[in-house]
């Protein structure tokens, strides 16, 4: 009897839970699930517009074949998009983690620096950044980026002086010449890390102090493992952000194609692109879990 009543409350509660998420679920179906399926269908069909709306004719993988094998334009942009992400991701994660660690400490002027470092969050999630750091399209010869960082450092000289291997010096050079872009892209990530740092239990730090751990050990054995989930979130956010940013050459070319009403081909290229992105993200997340998280926790 009593158990029955208890179960009654539980089922009532679960019904209330479903009630709260019902609008979201409806939105998910209408504005997410259905469009995704449609977009897959578009990519496999010839789409044309007429008075009755949209006419589709199934043509199979023709658009995929055309976009990838015949046109040749996409494969190159695809390569650029993927390699630029691979070099941006670790730097952005590193910058935002270091910034968050510093801003989380107590020191004079902290409020000022926090207010300053959140400015990119306010300004930089969009077009202002596109205009500031324009590197694609018609503005390529006029990048502010160039005027900002071009004559400030001469990295190749330093690299030559230090006698670094070509791969590393290229990487560093690329990172430094884009340092403005990179730091301005790390705003939200810093915020996420700071929020994550709050949930590390302080008792762990106290215990490590008693044990006589150095700050360095404290970071590697407490802070970093506790942040592993937030780091994952930051990585995912950064990847999604960089892959869909309008400064990404791939998205830029898609946008033009889409505006021209070329729905079927756009859908095909987008599906291929994001399938590839999904695979890359999957591998990175797997590697991260396998080699970093497992090792430290």
């Amino acid at each position: 009897m009593r158990k029955n009543k208890h179960r009654g409350i539980e089922s009532l509660k679960s019904r209330y839970g479903l009630m709260f998420i019902a609008p979201w679920f409806l939105g998910f179906i209408l504005f997410f699930a259905i469009p995704i399926i449609q977009s897959l269908l578009f990519s496999l069909s010839d789409v044309s517009l007429n008075n009755d709306g949209l006419a589709t004719k199934f043509v199979g993988l023709q658009h995929y074949r055309y976009a990838l094998l015949q046109s040749g334009a996409y494969t190159q942009t695809l390569g650029t998009a993927v390699t630029s992400l691979l070099y941006q991701l670790p730097i952005i994660v590193l910058i935002s983690m270091v910034l968050a660690l510093i801003l989380n400490q107590k020191f004079r002027g902290r409020t000022f620096f926090r207010a300053l470092f959140f400015l990119p969050v306010i300004i930089a999630t969009g077009i202002v950044m596109d205009i500031l750091f324009m590197t694609t399209g018609s503005m390529s010869d006029s990048t502010v980026n160039e005027s900002l960082s071009g004559n400030m450092f001469d990295v190749s000289d330093i690299a030559a002086f230090l006698d670094l291997p070509a791969g590393i010096s290229d990487y560093v050079e690329k990172a430094i010449s884009n340092i403005f872009d990179l730091i301005w892209s790390s705003g939200i990530q810093t915020v996420l890390f700071i929020a994550g740092l709050q949930s590390v239990p302080t008792s762990l730090y106290e215990a490590s102090k008693v044990e006589g751990a150095t700050k360095w050990e404290e970071f590697w054995f407490i802070t970093f493992p506790s942040l592993s989930q937030v780091t994952l979130l930051v990585m995912i956010y950064t990847m999604v952000e960089q892959f869909t940013s309008s400064r990404n050459p791939m998205i830029d070319s898609m946008y033009t194609l889409m505006k021209g009403g070329n729905y079927d081909e756009t859908s095909a290229v987008l599906w291929f692109y994001f399938a590839l992105v999904g695979i890359i993200m999957g591998i990175l997340i797997w590697a991260y879990n396998r080699f970093l998280v497992k090792r430290w926790s």
Binding site: F32, I36, Q38, S39, F42, V240, F243, T244, M254, S267
Partner: peptide, 8 residues
Amino acid sequence: PDTMIIIP
């Protein structure tokens, strides 16, 4: 991302 579903 929205890019995927904008056309439909």
